[in-house]
């Protein structure tokens, strides 16, 4: 039996700022989840996009975790493209929950510009700034995101 498998979860993002929730089950026969790699077809869509990820109700990545920390360009060697979790995490057909949020609506602001900013004294009304009514980084919709999970027995 093989010791490694790359399980894929494909999402279609249709609109700026869209949030997609997904769930599933880790494929059978693999003890651990070793890493994750998010594949996005447009570099510009990586900016400010976030991915939250839970396994068996344990938060591996919080909802504000930036996709840019989970992906890389083709200039990176194939064997180091995955983000490896800092510890062994048991998969064992565990249940997956995730939340992907497109970041291109307010690309210069993380979390799609939701005003969670702890440190915003001026309370800038950024949502009404001229530039943010458009998509200055030119992300084309729809686009597909593939979340690759590295399952292993090792």
């Amino acid at each position: 039996m093989k010791n490694n498998k790359f399980q894929r979860i494909r999402l279609r993002v249709s609109a700026m700022g869209e949030t997609i929730r997904f769930n599933g089950v880790c494929d059978k026969g693999y003890k651990y989840i070793k890493g994750v790699y998010v594949s996005i077809p447009q570099d510009k869509a990586i900016q400010s996009a976030t991915l939250g990820f839970r396994l068996n109700n344990v938060e591996l990545l919080d909802d504000g975790h930036e996709v840019r920390m989970l992906t890389c360009s083709n200039n990176v060697a194939p064997n180091t493209k995955f983000f490896s979790f800092p510890e062994k995490i048991e998969a064992n057909s565990g249940s997956i929950e995730g939340r992907y949020t497109d970041g291109s609506k307010y690309p210069l602001l993380v979390d799609n510009g939701e005003d969670l900013g702890v440190f915003d004294p001026g309370k800038v009304d950024f949502k009404n700034l001229a530039g943010y009514n458009t998509n200055p980084f030119g992300v084309v919709f729809p686009y597909d995101v593939i979340i690759n999970l590295w399952l292993t027995n090792e």
Binding site: N56, V58, E59, L60, L61, D62, G64, H65, F85, P86, E87, I89, E90, L109, V110, D111, L116, G117, V118, F119, D120, G122, V124
Partner: peptide, 21 residues
């Protein structure tokens, strides 16, 4: 299960040139 790692985050908003937060 509690994981042995965490990515703790702090978010800052820079509103104008030269701002110091």
């Amino acid at each position: 299960m509690i994981l042995g790692y965490r990515f703790q985050k702090v978010k800052l908003r820079i509103s104008k040139a030269g701002q110091r937060v």
